[in-house]
Design a protein around this nucleic acid. Structure first.
Lengths: 230, 230
DNA sequence: CGGCTAAGTGTCAAACTGACGCTAAGGCGG
DNA sequence: CCGCCTTAGCGTCAGTTTGACACTTAGCCG
């Protein structure tokens, strides 16, 4: 930091890419803008950083405001920052984007400032059909790509599952997020052999029909060795 | 973004984790602060975002100011943003950190605002011996970890090499950055078999002594399949 | 009870990994 | 000019992992 320089001030916002798996699709939380610019258009949820707030706290606060749910039900991590000078026509803004991953959630409550809030399939949001406001399409695309690649080498897929889940529910997450089909038997072998990924609870469930499936909790490791490559 | 909300303004800075491999060590560029706070302490190079500047442009400008070198000699990518309310005692700041990777470079010219600039081994900077100013030790640690993990699944190691390099120079980068020893023959097999990683130039060099080694340029792929795991 | 579903185990050939021996090709000192 | 030193690059082999696919297990439902 250069003491002699000017330090022009900038409005800092936090935007959220909230992802979940619903109806066999990867979906993102969107809010409909009530005011100009981009009135009526869909956007990512977000808001201004408050004066005495750290960035992760701002992200957690926004997440709670938009979904009504406490942020301990989400995996929340920073994605990247975006600061093109013309990204918001009203003023100079820099936004710090976060991604939040969660198991299937109830339909969101409309936030305080948004006309409407709803889940929409990522594939539709990114197809340019109904374009997102600001640079939010690029942010969403980056967030989705981050999620896809982190499934390979971290236990992050479990963030899309309830706290106890079966191997086939986990596989379903991989299939939907990656858009691929995986062999159930090889997938089962890989995830159960990967040290620290899954911890059996001892219980079973029949919620998917067929033979009862063992339930697992996510383990303690942060990295998968070896990774599950796409 | 919430139209009704206050939008307190914040000073936005860009800080750089500039890494290179020098004298068998991973080293980072540091500048000595000339003024309070933290006068005399080492810090990461950086500066304020200018009014009409995008974030990558600010990072490239700072990099040029601090090293005197054009930024096309670096691999530059965004690392993360840091915005704890008390991270700078003078004012509310949010910094967007970038990592820049380069081949061994000349000793840097002292920047306009820094008392001194020099390369220092990352291992010493992170050992708490001579602590970095602000939250720069945490930023540096994050940058180093990013570089280490990106060596596994991207061709990023080549950013630490000159534009044409040998397999053993590349291996040397892996060994220094990871702090491991790799088998030269197995390493050679892996990198030459990984599609798109290395493109032979047809030339050879004897700059490392012994039998002449083939020179390669980095290929076009962004991801290594399969990755080189630590 | 018999058939349906999905879970979980087993098999096998092909590919990959890690450890390590061997030859190739230049520089250098005598 | 000739060995010797150094590093490059190829080869081998056993153990492991992968991907494709057959088979058995265990509850549910009519």
């Amino acid at each position: 930091m250069a003491p002699g320089d000017a330090h022009p001030s900038v409005a800092v916002t936090v935007d959220l890419v909230v992802l979940t798996v619903r109806s066999e699709q990867l979906q993102a939380l969107t809010v409909q803008r009530g005011e100009a610019p981009y009135a009526g258009r869909w956007a990512l949820p977000g808001g201004f950083l408050q004066p005495d707030e750290d960035l992760p706290d701002a992200a957690a606060r926004e997440l709670h405001e938009e979904t009504g749910l406490s942020s301990d039900r989400f995996h929340l991590e920073q994605l990247a920052s975006y600061g093109a000078p013309d990204r918001d026509p009203r003023m100079r803004t820099v936004t710090v984007a976060y991604i939040a991953l969660a198991a299937d959630l109830p339909v969101p409550t409309a936030g305080t400032d948004a006309a409407d809030a709803r889940w929409q399939p990522v594939s539709e949001l990114l197809e340019g059909d109904r374009e997102l406001a600001f640079d939010h399409a690029a942010i969403l695309a980056d967030g989705v790509e981050r999620a896809r690649s982190k499934l390979e080498y971290t236990p992050l897929a479990a963030a899309f599952c309830p706290s106890e889940f079966t191997v086939s529910e986990l596989r379903h997450v991989y299939e939907v997020v990656w858009g691929t089909v995986l062999d159930p038997r090889n997938f089962h072998r890989k995830v159960t052999r990967t040290e620290g990924f899954l911890e059996p609870t001892g219980d079973t469930t029949t919620r998917e029909g067929g033979r009862p499936a063992r339930l697992y909790r996510v383990g303690t490791v942060a990295q998968l060795h070896p990774p599950l490559l796409r």
